[in-house]
Amino acid sequence: MSRRLKRERRAVAGKRRAGGTPWHRRHRRLLVGVVGVLVLVLGTASGYAYYLNSQLDNVGRVDTQLKEKDRPDPDRGRALNILLLGSDKGKEEPGARDTTLAEDAAASRWPAGKYRSDTLMIAHITSDRRKVYLVSIPRDTFTDIHDQTGAVRSKQKINDAFSEYGPDGAISTVENLTNLRMRHLAIIDWDGFESLSSAVGGVPVFIPHAFYDPKQEVQWQAGQQTLEGKKALAYVRTRYGLVRGDFDRIARQQNFLRSLMKKMLARDTLSNPIKLTRTLTAVTKNLTVDADWDPSDMRALALSLRGVRSDDVTFLTAPVAGTELDPTYGDVVVLDQAKCAELFDALRNDRMDAYLRKYPDDRLADERQIG
């Protein structure tokens, strides 16, 4: 871990213990929250970037030689790959202090098993900043698990990397699987979707068939529905009762994000100060990013994405060859090595349009075809 990262994490923990948050920390959280919306939900840059600028004009700041709004995207001309993790907290050890993910990552020992990253996605932002591709990697993908040092520790389901070895283990595992550099990391707590879905007034989804989820004890009715709060969280978590299990869950998660993105871009959200503030608050409370993602770089990236619209965002899943029953780990997902090589090469060389011309059916289906 870099010295800079350790200093920043110690500073954050120190401010928490002191009970206060100075203006520059509030400033940073607002930046992180806004850019988290822009990158995680993808394509919302225009309205939120302007809102961000208007809000930052009202807070104190230290004089600098350069005005951030005039600075270019630091990665202009280069495509970006950002690792997105959807995280749930597992059971706390009896008597353990309730610590945040940032505090746990900064500690000398990562709490193995405390967190679960059942959702892994790569957000690919094209070099011209006109398109975004969001590629899901199935949680049960059977692959080499790398620890925080990059060493191979086992062959397991890919979600074990974050659970056992933390953010660095997840990054290392995904990078070795794909041979892609993850420029940044963003982790969102799935519980945050309760408040986020409520902040925008509910998220519309279509459920084609009625079914029962025995794990969550939820009966899903067929038809168009508007989900918020616990029902929205149950929707993205549902796995049991679906015909294709986790593959259908991935499609539902992508479908929810697609619908949420459209709702956040809707005029009644962008023009409603109360709804917009609630949305940003919901994000800031449930988002963690790598400490090296400088706020000025985040803002520059957000501004460079202001032309992106919902139709410029494409959702897809890493190609799968099938599933197998492993005697130790149970049902595992086996990726289609040849086709994945094509996909990862397209991401590496910023040629996703060519890949999807060859494999048009890899795009996320219409919502009426999703379980």
Score class of each variant (00 low, 15 high):
residue 1 M to H: 13
residue 3 R to K: 08
residue 3 R to T: 08
residue 5 L to Y: 10
residue 6 K to Y: 02
residue 13 A to G: 05
residue 17 R to P: 09
residue 17 R to S: 10
residue 18 A to H: 01
residue 30 L to V: 10
residue 30 L to I: 09
residue 33 G to W: 02
residue 37 V to K: 12
residue 37 V to C: 13
residue 38 L to P: 15
residue 42 L to E: 15
residue 47 G to V: 14
residue 55 Q to E: 14
residue 56 L to W: 01
residue 60 G to T: 11
residue 62 V to G: 04
residue 74 P to C: 04
residue 76 R to W: 10
residue 76 R to T: 14
residue 86 G to W: 01
residue 87 S to C: 06
residue 88 D to E: 08
residue 89 K to M: 15
residue 89 K to F: 11
residue 89 K to H: 11
residue 94 P to C: 09
residue 95 G to K: 07
residue 101 L to D: 02
residue 102 A to N: 06
residue 102 A to H: 03
residue 111 P to T: 03
residue 115 Y to Q: 06
residue 117 S to A: 07
residue 121 M to H: 09
residue 123 A to N: 12
residue 124 H to Y: 09
residue 125 I to K: 02
residue 127 S to G: 13
residue 127 S to T: 15
residue 129 R to Y: 06
residue 130 R to M: 14
residue 132 V to C: 11
residue 133 Y to L: 13
residue 135 V to F: 09
residue 137 I to A: 10
residue 138 P to N: 01
residue 139 R to Y: 01
residue 144 D to H: 06
residue 152 V to M: 00
residue 161 A to K: 00
residue 161 A to M: 00
residue 169 G to C: 03
residue 180 L to K: 02
residue 184 H to G: 06
residue 188 I to Y: 08
residue 193 F to V: 12
residue 193 F to H: 04
residue 193 F to P: 11
residue 195 S to D: 13
residue 196 L to I: 14
residue 197 S to H: 04
residue 198 S to I: 08
residue 201 G to V: 11
residue 203 V to M: 03
residue 208 P to A: 03
residue 208 P to D: 01
residue 210 A to C: 05
residue 219 Q to R: 02
residue 222 A to Q: 06
residue 225 Q to K: 03
residue 229 G to Y: 01
residue 229 G to L: 02
residue 230 K to R: 09
residue 234 A to N: 04
residue 234 A to D: 05
residue 236 V to R: 00
residue 239 R to Y: 03
residue 241 G to M: 00
residue 242 L to R: 02
residue 249 R to G: 02
residue 259 S to K: 04
residue 259 S to Q: 06
residue 261 M to D: 13
residue 262 K to F: 10
residue 268 D to V: 14
residue 272 N to G: 13
residue 273 P to G: 15
residue 282 A to T: 09
residue 286 N to W: 01
residue 286 N to E: 04
residue 287 L to R: 05
residue 288 T to F: 01
residue 291 A to Q: 05
residue 291 A to R: 03
residue 293 W to K: 00
residue 299 R to V: 15
residue 305 L to D: 12
residue 306 R to D: 14
residue 306 R to N: 15
residue 311 D to V: 15
residue 312 D to H: 11
residue 318 A to Y: 04
residue 319 P to R: 02
residue 323 T to S: 02
residue 325 L to M: 06
residue 330 G to H: 03
residue 335 L to I: 04
residue 339 K to L: 01
residue 341 A to H: 08
residue 344 F to C: 08
residue 349 N to R: 04
residue 349 N to P: 07
residue 351 R to V: 10
residue 352 M to W: 03
residue 356 L to F: 09
residue 357 R to I: 15
residue 358 K to P: 10
residue 364 L to A: 11
residue 364 L to R: 07
residue 366 D to S: 14
residue 370 I to T: 05
